[in-house]
Design a protein around this nucleic acid. Sequence first.
DNA 1: AAGATAGTTTGCTTATGATCGAAGTATGAA
DNA 2: TTCATACTTCGATCATAAGCAAACTATCTT
Lengths: 226, 226
Amino acid sequence: MKAGTDLAQIGSLVGDPARANMLAALMGGTALTASELALEAGVALPTASAHLAKLSDGGLVSVARQGRHRYYALADHRVAAMLENIMGVAATLGPKRVLPGPRDKAMRDARVCYDHLAGEMGVAMLDSFIGRGLIRVDGERAEMSSAGASYFAGLGIDLDAMGRKRRPVCRTCLDWSVRRSHLAGGLGAAMLECILTRGWARREKDSRVIRFTPMGRREFEMMLRG
Amino acid sequence: MKAGTDLAQIGSLVGDPARANMLAALMGGTALTASELALEAGVALPTASAHLAKLSDGGLVSVARQGRHRYYALADHRVAAMLENIMGVAATLGPKRVLPGPRDKAMRDARVCYDHLAGEMGVAMLDSFIGRGLIRVDGERAEMSSAGASYFAGLGIDLDAMGRKRRPVCRTCLDWSVRRSHLAGGLGAAMLECILTRGWARREKDSRVIRFTPMGRREFEMMLRG
DNA sequence: AAGATAGTTTGCTTATGATCGAAGTATGAA
DNA sequence: TTCATACTTCGATCATAAGCAAACTATCTT
């Protein structure tokens, strides 16, 4: 009875097409303004504003005012993980995904999940880190070994600064396409940034897809092998 | 755009209070008839019937006709995991849970998740199995070591029969109260059954709570220590 | 057979909430 | 100050779907 109320509250927030499209857009990780989200959802601005107010009240998104703009983002990595999870169920349940199109294939290969790398390449990356003893995993929680600390510092990641933030450094996130875990948390975000700044890959316009260049992919795989 | 449609479809199924209550009731793991679910959701039978048809069409629940009864159950362990996940987000986001009441405390301690043990005791159990090398975990997937096989067989669990079913033997499931993994899959179900048939614990009426007897808890902890 | 129980279907009412135009507020630019 | 941009609030409309009573179907009981 009571448990159902909680479920219904979140479900109804996600259950409206316009809001669902907004949330899906925000899964890309970048904060978006109300106007951009209105466009994304295909509704007029007042409508979008009302939806965003609901999402905000419900705690699914956070707002940051910057001058006359309002930047919306997913509230939490947990919200992102929940949405990924729902998408995963939809993918298996849905009215028989026929052949996965090329777009889906790219999504499965590498995509942004909130602010870190997901898809097969994300899973492969975490696998490699675990296999080389850089990270230990325990459920959703994970931690870096001392070997890991020196390794990631060597990649130019500022672990001290990361440790001072409230956000956990190591986290895992269930990948809907592969049904295995990939790396999330501050370190996951830093790794994605690292991949993008080195030019190994770039984000596809208006989508969550990450396209590796042939050379970038080689470099990435070399990194995984140590 | 497309991604949002999938989200919205599932979200709207979960988003209706009556349906959410039904799903919450089905999280208890036992299959329920349409009448029972109507009662649980607080709606008339025709209304419940319509809701169940939608849930069934949407693939969230499965139906098994038995004479003039229709037994409804969650379609899948993934659906169960998704609902747990949503509840977890609701719990952290919700209008600040004040003090967790005694009921919540019992839920956090030990409860049924679909058909296996969840809560702190479920997490402790999986921890123990991993620590003793009986099970290896990799994301949502998990597998039993040979040491594990002989150990579980020694508890009287029929692993051969389990292996013949389509259902995976070892699976992990994210625990919303602890945010760590507990054991699911066929083995998880068998372990819960084992705990109940030995009288270590019993299910609380009309709830997902599992109450360990003082003696049962001691026995359980002894088992975890090996 | 006649009843009883379990569930679905139909037809109708009602209410919720999604939508947008128009007007209002706040911030930045000229 | 004046205008423009970004967004919210208000007010009204409209569509969807949740709800139930009554009638129908199917299965079990006697």
